[in-house]
């Protein structure tokens, strides 16, 4: 029955404990120290992770504002001037980003996953949406080797 099982368990527990009072104190102290170490480790890693995510969010919001201002500049240009301005900027050393105007959305082999990527993409979407007053924006990560530029046939590494 449950009662005899409980008594047997208690007996087995008592047998595995140290026989002396001193031994039992030592055991309690060791267990206590290990538990404190574990608790501090858990708190410390979660704080480090939070601060890393906060840093990442600040960094990505800085880049997102910069992207938004570049996009606003190109959007404000009359249609027929966009290519001329792009060529001029490239000759002069270029903007901070690679910019092109295409007839359709280029395919991007999106890479990466996890909370960090989600945070960056979410920050970019939020800032670009509110800064440019649009709702159709795609934010993706690409490997440099598979990055397409100008159209779906030209890879960056071939340029």
């Amino acid at each position: 029955t449950a009662d005899t099982r409980w008594r047997r368990l208690r007996r087995r527990l008592a047998r595995s404990l140290p026989g002396t009072l001193r031994g039992r104190f030592v055991l309690i102290m060791v267990v206590g120290v290990l538990a404190a170490q574990l608790a501090s480790y858990v708190i410390w890693t979660s704080q480090v992770r939070d601060s890393r995510l906060a840093q990442l969010e600040e960094l990505s919001s800085n880049v997102a504002f910069s992207v938004a201002s570049t996009m606003r500049f190109f959007r404000s240009l009359p249609r027929e001037y966009r290519h001329i301005v792009l060529d001029q900027l490239r000759d002069m050393g270029g903007p901070r980003f690679f910019v092109s105007v295409n007839e359709k959305r280029l395919d991007v082999a999106d890479i990466g996953e996890g909370p960090e990527k989600a945070r960056v993409v979410e920050t970019f979407r939020r800032i670009l949406t509110e800064q440019l007053d649009i709702d159709a924006v795609s934010v993706e990560f690409s490997r440099p080797e598979t990055l397409r530029v100008f159209n779906n046939e030209v890879l960056l590494k071939d340029l």
């Binding site: 880049v63 570049t70 996009m71 980003f97 910019v99 990466g112």
Partner: peptide
């Protein structure tokens, strides 16, 4: 490092493409 690509439809058949190269 990975490259961030942002694409935005300005008008029909006009996509602004921006990559952090």
């Amino acid at each position: 490092p990975p490259i961030l690509v942002v694409q935005l439809e300005l008008e029909p058949a006009t996509w602004l493409y921006l990559a952090t190269i």
